[in-house]
Every structure is written in structure tokens, then in C-alpha cells.
Design a protein around this nucleic acid. Structure first.
Length: 483
DNA sequence: ATAGCCTTGAGA
DNA sequence: TCTCAAGGCTAT
């Protein structure tokens, strides 16, 4: 999108060492009611909730809250507390002191996340900032899915979501995907708030000090209802890193794409009669062609890519790895019926192909084997759609391909996507801490595999064994001609 | 009412 | 035993 510009920043350590309160910007004193805040906002939040205080705003309910002005408008201050993700449930109804509550593990995870992010940033040596034109009334901005690209919301300094910058998960997003998580401190979510909040006073009867379980009905445990968006009993809207939401926006539904390809091939095949062995390879090539078309279409429409002037050369370099990923993943992802038919079809083709062309042909069978190994590793990882979208970007923006003028940009995108993926995997699959690294190590494997496949294709073509004239081969030629 | 410092106590 | 996020206390 034209509104998005990227700026690569020198990484400075001290900037990340001091954490700032997401409400007022004062110095953080620890985790309080769900996230890192300063002592004063902790106290303010406690007083407000415990004493069931009601405030009104003398202005437009959009007062700036910072260290010097935080006393001016308690209404907006409390509003901001809720917006950044402070948890009403963490204020104990029975005022019991000491001990631990169920947020403990979440705090721990958040710490681990911050640690890893720091390491990631440090290893890259720089960080990135997304700069946007002045936002147009953030609360009213419509982020719902319209099929077009939206400007990426500002990603807070150094990728640490210390300010509420995430966009509201849309129906498009929350309806389609798997298990939701407690966004908690990692992604302060900004629900589509009506500016006033309501909650009732604590019941007079004593209640054991324990945070309500969000998986069961909060009323039954606590007696005081929270505003709907904080009940979080049934599926809470997933709170995803904004970048991932953005990547998903331009990520086509794999199933739709596959169906289109199958339909296209079936139509072609209808005019050709029965599939015999000699046409198997050409069918496979045509299938690859169709997949390539969809990849090119995706890449051209996706965010970031439009920024690149030499985008076509990136595309040239990265489509084959992407094709490999697409093939591997379609064999790896849990499939619907149609898709699994396609998968069977692909596997049959692979087997047949190897039996036709590779009598004693070690290279191809090795390739197929490596591809299948990779596919099974991906399957074992249970890569979800959001992760797959990230992987595709990481492949597309391969920093190892030296493109002088855009090097920094490509590296920046890498880093941003890496950060988003790390954050996403840690918060969504906390029981699987290594998922991020497990996913990322597949990339060099995939690149190596596709290089091998490319060489093989090239060899086959040059030696005249493959006559099939297709996009894949053309791209190969174009690419080799460039280098 | 605010905010800095103090006390508490379940879990690691 | 130690940790550290809850609640409590109290000058400003």
C-alpha cells in the first residue's frame, strides 16, 4: 500500500531496556493486572475496580494520557487501561493478599517472549519501524475485510507491542481459524469499544480469591459481570500480531486455489482423453504452471512487494522455492476431501514420474524423497495457515539473494515477519516453545531442495529430455539468463 | 484521589 | 526458601 513506508533503524540497546507503561509512559514497576504497567496506573486501576468508581469525561472521551496529564481525566485513563489490556478479573473480589493467581504462567510466557525478541533483534543487528501517515480517527477505522489492502497499522518501536497498535480481528479472521488464545500482554487488543464501560460492584458475600476461569461462565464464579468484550468466556477474538493479519489478507485460500487448478486441469484433460503414462509428466508440468500463476498473482498483490522496483527479479528467484513449499504443504496440511484427492493425485504423479523417468535415475528419486521428507516434517509441525503465510513471505523475501538497492528493505521485511511469527507461535502454541525455530529451519532446507530441483529441471531441459514448454521452464530460462 | 512504599502468601 | 504480583497504608 502506498501509505506504508518502511524505515530501517539503527538498533540501540538502551531503548529496549527501559520498559514504559502502556497507559501513561511512566516507568514500569512489574506485571500488574495482566501486563507491565507503572505503579501509579496499577493503583489507579485497583482503586477504580475495587471501589466501583464511575468517571465522566469533560471533553470528548479522547484525552491524551501521559505521565503529566494522567490525573486530569480518570475516565480516559481507565478507558486506556482497558484498551491496553488490563484485566478486571485480576482484581480480587475478596481482596485476599499475597499468593499467586492464574496469570502467573502468562507473565512467564510474556517474559520469555520479550527475551526471545530481544535476542532476535540483537542477532539481526537492527530493527525496523513501520511509519504511517497520520491515522484517521483510529477507533472508527474500518479494518474489516474488503478484499483490498489496508495500510498496515503502526508497528510499535522495535516490534515490542508496548502500545495498543493491533487491529481488531475481523469476522473474516476470527471466523476462519483455529483455536483462539488469550492475547494478554503480548498483543494488547483494541476491541471495538463503545466509549463507556460498565460493570457492577463486587457482591457483598465473600468469594475465594481466584481469578475466574475464562473457559467457564464468569458470572457463576464471581457474581460480577464484566463488559461483554472482557468476559472472554467463549472464544475471545484472537489477538494476532497486526502483521500476520495483514499477511493473511493477501493470502489466498489454499483450498480455493487448489480447486481452481484441479478444475482447470480437468477441463484440459477432458479434451485429451484418458490420462496415459506419457502425458503424466506434462500434466504435472501444467499443474505446476497453474500453481505458479497463483503464486505470481499472490506475490504481485501482496503487501511489501509493491514497494520493490526490482520485484520481478525477486519473483524470478523465489517462485521455485515457493512452488516447493506449496507442493510440500499441500501434502502436509490437514486436508479436506477435495484437497486430499489432489494430494493423492500429486503423490501418484510423483511416483509415476519417478518410475517413468528415473529407472536408475538417482537424482530424481532423491529429490522426490527429500520432498517427501520435508513434507512429513511440515506435517509433524502442524503448520497452521498463519504460519504458512509467514513462511511464504520469508521465502519470497530471501535476504540471501543480493539485490543491492533493496537489501535493507528485504532484510527489514524478513525481520518483521520473523518477529510476528515468533510472537504468534509463542502466544498460540505456548506448550511448543520451539515451534518458531522448527518452522524457520525448514526454510534453508526448502531452498536447498528447490535449488536442486531447479538444477535438475534445467539439466533435463537442456539435455532435451523434457520438451514440455511451460511457464516453469520459461522462468528457469529467464532466471539463468539474468545471472 | 494519587502514588510510592509496605506486607502478604501461593507457587516455583 | 525465594519470588513477585496481589492488596494495604499513608504522606502529599
Amino acid at each position: 500500500h502506498e501509505g506504508v513506508t518502511l524505515k530501517v533503524m539503527e538498533y540501540t540497546y538502551d531503548e529496549d531496556l527501559e520498559e514504559l507503561c502502556p497507559v501513561c509512559g511512566d516507568k514500569v514497576s512489574g506485571y500488574h493486572y495482566g501486563l507491565l504497567t507503572c505503579e501509579s496506573c496499577k493503583g489507579f486501576f485497583k482503586r477504580t475496580v475495587q471501589n466501583n468508581k464511575r468517571y465522566t469525561c469533560a471533553e470528548n472521551q479522547e484525552c491524551k494520557i501521559d505521565k503529566t496529564q494522567r490525573k486530569r481525566c480518570p475516565f480516559c485513563r481507565f478507558q486506556k487501561c482497558l484498551n491496553v489490556g488490563m484485566r478486571l478479573e485480576a482484581v480480587r473480589a475478596d481482596r485476599m493478599r499475597g499468593g499467586r493467581n492464574k496469570f502467573g504462567p502468562l507473565y512467564k510466557r510474556d517474559r520469555a517472549l520479550k527475551q526471545q525478541k530481544k535476542a532476535l533483534i540483537r542477532s539481526n543487528g537492527f530493527k525496523l519501524e513501520t511509519v504511517l501517515p497520520p491515522p484517521t480517527s483510529p477507533l472508527q477505522t474500518d479494518y474489516s475485510f474488503t478484499g483490498t489492502l489496508h495500510a498496515l497499522p503502526t508497528i510499535s518501536k522495535s516490534l515490542l507491542p508496548s502500545t495498543p497498535t493491533s487491529i481488531t480481528p475481523t469476522d473474516y479472521e476470527s471466523g476462519l481459524y483455529g483455536p483462539t488464545t488469550l492475547g494478554m500482554a503480548m498483543q494488547p487488543h483494541v476491541p471495538p469499544l463503545t466509549p463507556q464501560y460498565q460493570y457492577t460492584a463486587f457482591p457483598s458475600r465473600a468469594i475465594k480469591a481466584e481469578c475466574p476461569d475464562y473457559t467457564s461462565s464468569p458470572e457463576s464464579l464471581t457474581g460480577y459481570p464484566y463488559p461483554d468484550q472482557y468476559l472472554s468466556s467463549s472464544p475471545q477474538p484472537p489477538s494476532l500480531p497486526p502483521l500476520i493479519l495483514e499477511l493473511l489478507r493477501c493470502d489466498p485460500d489454499e483450498l480455493v486455489v487448489q480447486n481452481k487448478i484441479v478444475a482447470h486441469l480437468q477441463q484440459e484433460q477432458n479434451g485429451r482423453g484418458r490420462l496415459d503414462k506419457t502425458s503424466t509428466f506434462s500434466l504435472m508440468c501444467r499443474m505446476a504452471d497453474q500453481t505458479l500463476f497463483s503464486i505470481v498473482e499472490w506475490a504481485r498483490s501482496c503487501i511489501f512487494f509493491k514497494e520493490l522496483r526490482v520485484s520481478s527479479s525477486i519473483l524470478l528467484n523465489q517462485t521455485i522455492p515457493l512452488l516447493s513449499l506449496t507442493c510440500s504443504s499441500s501434502a502436509a496440511v490437514q486436508l479436506s476431501e477435495v484437497e486430499s484427492q489432489l494430494k493423492t493425485c500429486v503423490l501418484c504423479l510423483q511416483v509415476e514420474l519417478s518410475s517413468i523417468l528415473s529407472q536408475g535415475e538417482a537424482t530424481l528419486s532423491g529429490l522426490v524423497q527429500r520432498g517427501q521428507e520435508l513434507a512429513s516434517r511440515l506435517r509433524a509441525l502442524q503448520v497452521d495457515r498463519r504460519e504458512m503465510a509467514c513462511l511464504k513471505f520469508l521465502l519470497l523475501f530471501n535476504p540471501n539473494v543480493k539485490l543491492l538497492e533493496n537489501q535493507a528493505f528485504v532484510e527489514g521485511v524478513q525481520e518483521q515477519v520473523n518477529g510476528a511469527l515468533l510472537e504468534y507461535t509463542l502466544s498460540t502454541y505456548p506448550q511448543f516453545q520451539e515451534k518458531f525455530s522448527q518452522l524457520v529451519v525448514r526454510l534453508p532446507e526448502l531452498r536447498a531442495l528447490s535449488t536442486q530441483a531447479e538444477d535438475y529441471l534445467c539439466y533435463m531441459h537442456l539435455s532435451g529430455e523434457v520438451t514440455c514448454n511451460n511457464l516453469l521452464i520459461e522462468m528457469l530460462h529467464a532466471k539463468r539468463a539474468c545471472v
